[in-house]
Structures are given as structure tokens and as C-alpha cells.
Design a protein around this nucleic acid. Sequence first.
RNA 1: GGCGCUUUCGUCUAGCGGCUAGGACACAUGCCUCUCACGCAUGGAACACGAGUUCGAUUCUCGUAGGCGCUACCA
Length: 505
Amino acid sequence: MADRKVRVRFAPSPTGPLHIGGVRTALYNYLFARQHGGDLIFRIEDTDSTRFVPGAEEYIIESFQWLGIKFDEGVSYGGNYGPYRQSERREIYKQYVDQLLTADKAYIAFDTPEELSKKREEIANFQYDASTRGLMRNSLTMSTEEVERLIADGHQYVVRFKIEPGRDVHVDDMIRGDVVINSSILDDKVLFKSADQLPTYHLANIVDDHLMEVSHVIRGEEWLPSAPLHVLLYEAFGWTETMPRFAHLPLLLKPTGNGKLSKRDGDKLGFPVFPLEWHDPKSGEVSSGYRESGYLPEAVVNFLALLGWNPGNDEEVMSMDELIRLFDLGKCSKAGARFDFMKCRWFNHEYIQLSDNRRLAEQFMPIVREHGVDETIERVEKVVEMMKNRVDFVKELWDLCSFFFIAPETYDEKTVKKRWKEDSAQVMSDLATLLEGLDDFSLAHQEEVVTKWIEDNELGMGNVMNAWRLTLVGEGKGPHMFDISSFLGKEETLRRMRRAIEVLK
RNA sequence: GGCGCUUUCGUCUAGCGGCUAGGACACAUGCCUCUCACGCAUGGAACACGAGUUCGAUUCUCGUAGGCGCUACCA
């Protein structure tokens, strides 16, 4: 057991877009698998036929591709333990349910959903368990003949797990330690549903994890209460020797207020809760995604990795490789983590600084084109290099740097008032003449000549530069003036200056 | 209601019996400066409460309170 190969899985249900919390769970599984040279399996848990949403499976796969989380086997990846879609494993589950039935560890129950909900209304805290199953319509209270007759007559039935009461069940959790729950508080869970003739999560999960030789189950804390049930199922099948180790992750909470993170919070506070944009096939509703909102996948991964785990030191900006090297389930926190989207923005800012300018320019290019500007990638790359340190997102670049591509038509009133002095027109005119005479319009040469000219004539650096900025930019923002003028080139610089002098006088 | 998990600055967290309780985000101020940013520096800001154990508890134990989850023929 100790030297068993590490095999972990991420097993979502295709009921909609992948929630950001699910992304983190998958990420932790990925980091763990990579660190231990193990396998990561992608399994689809579609045992609830009523909640199936078309497109969800494809969406999830695309999300992980974007994030750089790679699976080794599973739906769309192949592998030797398939099929990896639970709806395609019906026969397998059937066989294991029969095994439990034969061993008297499960039983057949005929109680309808209506009968059960009536029971729950009548009796406070009603639970289908050892104390009540003697009162219900099942194979424990009926004769074999009667059970067979009902089945032959086509009566619907479920299979329930027969839980022995009064036992302390231990779950050895890698994050929480030894969790003990008495089996008396567990109910006889339905293992096989009559409605769609499919197993429930609990049964399918245990059978698949066993058959797929899963060594560690890393999942959300919402599963902790049913972990004892799962331990009991491993026992019932006689699989305790190879039972996976469990790790239940803390949940992601709302940025403010009470409760866990929901789609609503994202809409309200303006951040995505899904990795990619999602178009709901039923309602037609569109939900924003991290990718479309301009987040870099590395930033999302880094931010998520630190939500509930940290390396134990002050390091925060870490690549996927570093995360793989440093990740440690034992260092995961136990309490839920509030989702601080401002910090996620900050990570994006950091990763933009670390990003290759060409890559950012390629992302920025479509926005530039949208504004009717035809520029080469090299020129756009230069702008990106000058401006990227002031944005959190690539798409914020345009508002800060459109003047590189489009000459100002109007001049910001406040800036004119503040920066355009009595002598500005004359100074700009002189500067234009000076610049016109330059054969070398490079940044360094301009800087040398112009600075000397300002000093020689005692014009004042701020006085000249601010007025000059107004003529080229149209307002008081942007990088250093020589960066702007040398990017624009002599001809465009002079044209803008002369036009401004004309308009502002 | 029952059961379980959980609790350090506003937020994410470090701490694993003795610390001026550290870092980051956010916030404030200052510096830099031709503007706007970036950056840098500084600052305010936390051990939920009550009992134990101990020479000594943020740290260990037990309560209380708050938070979270589960309590379906959903996962």
C-alpha cells in the first residue's frame, strides 16, 4: 500500500460550467499527481440523468486546456481503465450491487419517493436506517416470494446499503487527521436508483476508484460527511487494503457576507466565477469567464493554488513547476477561504510584467484592430513594453495608450488650463523647428539635444515637457516624452505639434 | 433540529509552549518625477470568548459563541 503508484482523479458532473472551486480541486489533484510522478484521471460522473447539460463536458475539457492542467487519462484522453464516463459503466455497477445484495450487505426497498417524503413529514428527523428499516417495505421485512413477485410485476425499487449501527467509523484525512463518526447516525443510503437505473454517486465513486486503482481522493469538504459511508462501502466490498487515502479541501467562500462562493457574487462584484465564458444552452444566459475577462491562466492558477494552501514561507508568485515542487497537502488550511478577487487582479498584474511582450502584443492586437488601426506587431510590441507595467489586464492598455496610434483631435480642458501657458505656442514652435533639424530622431539623440536646448534657454523642464505632452497626447498622461516622440517619428511628431499650436494658439 | 468540520490584521495567510505575533492584497501617507502610472519607503490593522494543563499559552485539552458543510432515488 505504501509504495502504491499515485493515481488521483478529478471527477466532475456535467451539470454546467466548471465552478472556480472545482478548478482549484482539480489543480491540487494535478499538483499532487505531478509531484509524485503519478497519474491524473478525468472521469465524468453523469449518474444523474436529469441534470445533464449538453456542452458541459466539452467546456470542462477546454477549461483545463486553457489553464495548463493536463490529464493523463480519462474522457477524451483515453487510457486502460475505461470507459471513463459513468453512464457507460452501467453493467459494471450492476454486478457490484448484486455482490452486495448476495452478501446481505444491501437490500431492496420498494418505498416510493412519495411514501418517503410523507414519512419525513410525519416523523421528525426520520431517517432510513437500522432503527426504521424494519417498518418499511423492503426485502428485510418481506418474504422472498413477495419481493420476487413485486419485481416480476414491474414494481420500481432501489437498493439500499445496510449500515450496521453503533460502530465508530474512522476516516483518516490527510488534512484533518482522524475523523470519527458513529455509524448509527448514517442512513441506509440508496446505492442504485430506480428512476434512471443508475447507481448513485456513492456506489459509482467507490467502484470506479477501486477499479481505476485510485490511491488518493482529494475533493471538497462537502464530501466529508459522506466519507464514513465510503469507508464502510470499501469494507463491504473487502477492499480496505487498497482503499485510497482521503483529503478534504476547505471550501471557497463569498468575498463578503455569509456562505460559499456563488455565481451571484461574481455578477454582483464584477469578477468571473468560471474559467471560460459560458453560454447556458437552456436560458441563453451568458456568464463571464476568466479567459475572456483577460486573466492569464498562470495568474489564475497561482492565485487559486494559494487559496487554502501556502508553501510555509513568504513566497507568492510561483510558476506551475514551482507549485508542483512545493505543494503539500499537509500544509493545506482547514477553514474555508474567502475569495479575494482583488488579489487575483494583482496576480494578473504580476504575470503581465513577467509575460513575454510579443505574447501580450498578440493579445492586444485584436483590440488595436477593432479601433481601426493598422499597425505591425513589432510596433504594438513596443507600446506594450512601455505600458504594461501600469495595467492589470491587457485590455486596459488601449485607454492608456491609444495616442500612440491615433492623433488627438481634442485637448483635455483641464490639462490645457494647467499646462498651456502664455508662451507655450512659441516654445512649441521653437521646439518643432529644433526637432525638424534633427537627422537622428532616436530617443537618445533627441533627449540630448532637447535637454540641452531647454537648459541653455532656461525654459524649465516641466514647462516644456507638459506642453509638449499636450500636443502629442492631448492630455496629461503617458510615458516619458522622448519615448512617445521617438515612437511616433519625426513626421508625425511635427504634424501633431503644429496642429496643436494652431488649435490652442 | 441532528451530525461533522472550522476560528490569527478588512481579506489570503506564517506561526507548530517563551516572537516587539511575520509576509502579501487592500487602504493611508511620503519619496521618485516632464504628466499619469509603475516602483520604493513608512504607517494603521489580528491571536473569538471562558475555563483548565503548564513556571509560561496564539500554540495543548474541554466548553461557549460565530462561520461552513452535510442531512435527496443531486453530485
